[in-house]
Design a protein around this nucleic acid. Structure first.
Length: 483
RNA sequence: CGGGGCGUAGCGCAGUUUGGUAGCGCACUUGGUUUGGGACCAAGGGGUCGCAGGUUCGAAUCCUGUCGCCCCGACCA
């Protein structure tokens, strides 16, 4: 980043100086969120929430296209329900918020504010499911959940966060596994295509899997500081919950059987991923598909020509808006064009159109891309088409750029000393052989702070030797320091 | 839960060492001049200095306590 650029954004700490301060500066200055009076909770401001709404649209469409319907389950869960599944309660007990009183009266049974909804949903499924003809049950809900976190970071980990959680019930293991993988693929498709964030897909180790799950799969993304972020998870819950919640059905063979279940979710954490994958020292860079504002139109209208310029610029605004482009016009008189350029760049708007007297004389407009800073001049007649194709181009360039970064920062070694060096000095993903023993996994974590992000589906090599213990290993895994 | 940092105007800070009229920059308001990469001039408004005790003639400043927030680590979407 040129020195000149830094001067434009004196309010933002450069990434190289202090990455987490950069992150906080950006989201506050861009008005994505603000801190609330409640510790660990944040206010998602309109700019951030519009981004979330756009993300919801893209994902909700995909969830529905794969046959799921939305529903809503209660915020409160009786203590007794949460406690039914042993692993589950053990996993979540430390971070649940309790409701003990209604008004002034103490409740007969404490309620938890849902940290996730498996238990309450299972309770209902046990009532709804009788026959194999009732299966599969494919339900999703958009809601917020509460986990009393000790350490919080805006979007990445807050005490309350927004998400969607899908909960399905199936006839057998094959169907449940198919569903689990199908939804992971939905997430991959959504995150890569709409958010322009490349992900690695794979299975979680037993240590890292969801409390109460048989198997957990995840999509893992690499942030621009070299740390990994779990961007979404999909769990095959097996029959664990069905057995404790007694969710049974009469199969066609006349036998009473337990259902196989899945659950899967992504959260507002994805907003953190967008920020950290694409942002730079000048601020946010938002992917066109979900950006609250795709195009910012800045008229250059000195007083003497304002009356000529503004109506023409307004006409351009109307034309692009009618074409379905999320465009805004910044015709505020109290700010200079330069100020507006910096402001909207900081907010990550993918494309800027400048139209001033000189442009109107020659019937053109200046387009400036946020992703690479390039400026091009196009005729007003071609503007609509140029804008549309540039937005597509920006979206794919952002993905390509992020993918290139991830490739550059994914390193392959089975040499533990080299592994430690990479994790300490360069970070990023390190792909290594692992024997499958959780004590090796634990040791690597203690010694390097790197965890196994996932066992990728893509296994390009045959067997080898575990990087920590040297024993025979059949699978490569992704290691990284993670958020 | 450990370690660190911070609470003074909307934001960022100075003032605290050595007690004595609460300040600066940005933002905001009004008027005017401006507009192709963060414009300028002038005049304004805005504060129980996180909170509670204490010491003192006098506390943002010293003492005691307390609350909150942020960051970094152990656990987690």
């Amino acid at each position: 980043m040129a020195k000149q650029d830094k001067e434009f954004v004196k309010e933002i700490t450069p990434q190289a100086q202090d990455y987490s301060q950069w992150y906080l500066d950006v989201i506050l200055k861009a008005q994505m969120m603000d801190y609330s009076p409640v510790k660990g909770c944040m206010v998602i401001r309109p700019y951030g929430f519009t981004l979330w709404e756009n993300m919801q649209q893209g994902l909700d469409r995909r969830i529905k296209e794969t046959g799921h319907k939305n529903a809503y389950f209660p915020l409160f869960i009786p203590e007794s329900l949460l406690q039914k599944e042993a692993d589950h309660i053990e996993g979540f007990a430390p971070e649940v918020a309790w409701v003990t009183h209604g008004g002034n009266e103490k409740l007969a049974e404490r309620l938890v504010v849902r940290p996730t909804s498996e238990t309450i949903i299972c309770e209902m499924y046990s009532r709804w499911i009788q026959s194999y003809r009732d299966l599969p049950v494919l339900i999703n809900q958009w809601c917020s959940v509460v986990r009393w976190e000790k350490v919080t970071r805006p979007f990445l980990r807050t005490s309350e966060f927004l998400w969607q959680e899908g909960h399905t019930a199936h006839r057998n293991e094959e169907d449940a596994e198919e569903e689990t993988l199908k939804m992971l693929e939905v997430y991959r498709d959504f995150v890569e295509n709409d958010l322009a964030v490349p992900v690695v897909t794979g299975k979680k180790t037993d240590n890292e899997k969801f409390a109460g799950a048989l198997r957990t799969y995840s999509i893992e993304a690499l942030m621009s500081d070299g740390k990994a972020l779990q961007a979404g998870t999909s769990h095959n819950l097996g029959e664990h919950f069905a057995k404790v919640f007694d969710i049974t059905y009469l199969d066609s063979d006349g036998e009473l059987k337990y259902v196989w279940q899945t659950s899967w979710g992504v959260s507002t954490r994805l907003i953190g991923a967008i920020i950290m994958v694409h942002g730079d020292d000048r601020g946010l860079i938002l992917p066109p598909k979900v950006a609250p504002t795709q195009v910012i139109l800045v008229p250059i209208a000195p007083k003497k020509v304002r009356e000529e310029v503004l109506p023409k610029v307004a006409a351009v605004y109307e034309e692009l808006k009618a074409a379905g482009i999320r465009i805004e016009m910044d015709d505020r008189e109290e700010y200079s064009p330069g100020w507006k350029f910096n402001e909207w760049e900081m907010k990550g708007v993918p494309l800027r159109i400048e139209i001033g007297p000189r442009d109107l004389e020659s019937g053109q407009a200046v387009l400036a891309r946020r992703d690479n800073g390039e400026k091009v001049t196009v005729s007003l007649a071609e503007l609509k088409d140029s804008v549309s194709s540039l937005l597509v181009e920006i979206q794919s360039n952002m993905f390509a750029k992020a993918l290139a970064f991830r490739e550059e920062n994914t390193r392959r070694t089975d040499d533990y000393e080299e592994f430690k060096r990479i994790i300490a000095e360069k970070r990023g993903f390190v792909v290594s052989h692992w024997c499958g023993d959780s004590s090796c996994e634990q040791a690597v974590k203690e010694e390097t702070k790197a965890t196994i992000r996932c066992i990728p589906f893509n296994q390009e090599e045959g067997s080898g030797t575990c990087l920590r213990c040297g024993a025979k290993s059949d699978s490569l895994v992704y290691f990284a320091r993670a958020y």
